[in-house]
Computed example of a mutant assay.
Amino acid sequence: MIPPAFEYHAPRSVGEAIGLLGSLGPDAKLLAGGHSLLPMMKLRFAQPAHLIDLNRIAELRGIHDDGDSIVIGAMTVENDLIASELLQRRVPLLPEAAKLIADPQVRNRGTIGGDIAHGDPGNDHPAISLALDAQFTLQGPNGLRTVAANAFFFGTYMTALAEDEILTAIRVPAFAQGTGWAYEKLKRKTGDWATAGAAVVLRLDGGVVSHARVSLTNVAPMAIRVADAEAALLGQPVSEASIAAAARAAMAAAEPAEDLRGDIAYKTAMAGQMVKRAIAKAASRCR
């Protein structure tokens, strides 16, 4: 289908974009990579009167070191995450996981910020950001504020981002020595959303787990962090028993919706399997 008519705006700065959001009001939508918004417009599920294209705002792109953290501009595309030597050294979960997102054509345009801000439970970066303890920088007419990933996602397409704000950057702690990581994703075919996915970040100290983050993709109304799965691992050696306990906790937390990818029982079981695989892989990398 052809989307309804809209007015196109191409600001050159964050300030200009925020000004447009304020003046145009709720009839305006931000355009990042466009892989979520444009299909919704073609189906007329979304009918904005104004599109504000963020692609010409250079300050929203790039990856840089900031001491113990890495800061990523919200308009940085997936292929730039994959190619970043800085991320490969300091937060390798991000470039590895980006390779599992969609296909090469999409990764050349799709942005990390758009993936997060859309609030789709099927998108990959929300769960990854939860596992990384990411912080999001939001900018609006009243200035900057920071929201933790764990407090950002409220439900399907529902986030802490206000209508007059822009997600400008993602800050992630660099991995400490001994950190292991993994993102395991089950999908039907290349380019598809996950049937179920799990992101895991672990650290071992003296043979037992001293830090654990477990989060899930597309098995609840939003990406979720599973505190009970983390508790099953903390203070324990990584073993078949602790991995099984974490997987049971993840399955208990899952609330998938039945669709063409599977029924509720299947998706719940696959959430457990992805958690098992991700924990085992992450533990093998703790060195």
Rank of each mutant, 00 (worst) to 15 (best):
A28N: 10
R277I: 13
F153H: 09
L20M: 10
A174E: 06
L37Y: 11
T217Q: 04
A249T: 06
G73V: 00
R89Y: 09
V14W: 02
V238D: 04
A247C: 07
E163V: 15
F153W: 09
K267G: 06
L37M: 11
S129F: 04
V71R: 05
A169Q: 15
A253G: 08
F152R: 04
A247W: 00
T268V: 05
D192C: 04
L161E: 00
M158Y: 07
F154Y: 13
A102S: 06
I170W: 01
T137I: 12
I101G: 11
A151T: 10
M251N: 08
I82Y: 04
A257G: 14
G140A: 00
A269L: 13
V77P: 03
V208G: 06
I224L: 12
R287Y: 13
L186Q: 09
Y266N: 10
Y8I: 03
W181S: 12
K99Y: 01
K42H: 13
P92M: 04
G143R: 12
P126Q: 13
M222I: 12
G235L: 07
A160G: 05
G178M: 08
A58H: 13
A151L: 11
L93T: 00
L138C: 15
R287H: 14
P26I: 08
D124H: 05
T217D: 03
G22H: 07
E96P: 02
L21R: 10
G22L: 09
G19H: 06
K276P: 00
Y8N: 08
R277F: 13
R285W: 02
L216D: 09
R171P: 02
A149D: 01
A32E: 07
A232D: 05
L233M: 14
L130W: 11
I63T: 01
V91F: 06
T179P: 01
L130S: 09
G206W: 05
T76I: 12
D115H: 03
L260C: 11
V71G: 08
R171L: 07
H50R: 13
L161S: 00
E16G: 04
K42R: 15
T168A: 03
D133C: 03
F45T: 10
A32S: 14
I63N: 06
A283H: 02
R203C: 07
T268N: 04
D124I: 12
K281Q: 15
G197H: 00
A176D: 14
I264R: 14
A131T: 14
K185C: 11
S210N: 09
L167I: 00
G62Q: 10
T268D: 03
D80L: 02
I63D: 01
G19K: 13
T195F: 10
R56L: 11
T217G: 00
L24F: 01
K189H: 15
A232Q: 03
L86M: 12
V106M: 04
D164M: 00
D228N: 13
T111C: 09
I52G: 09
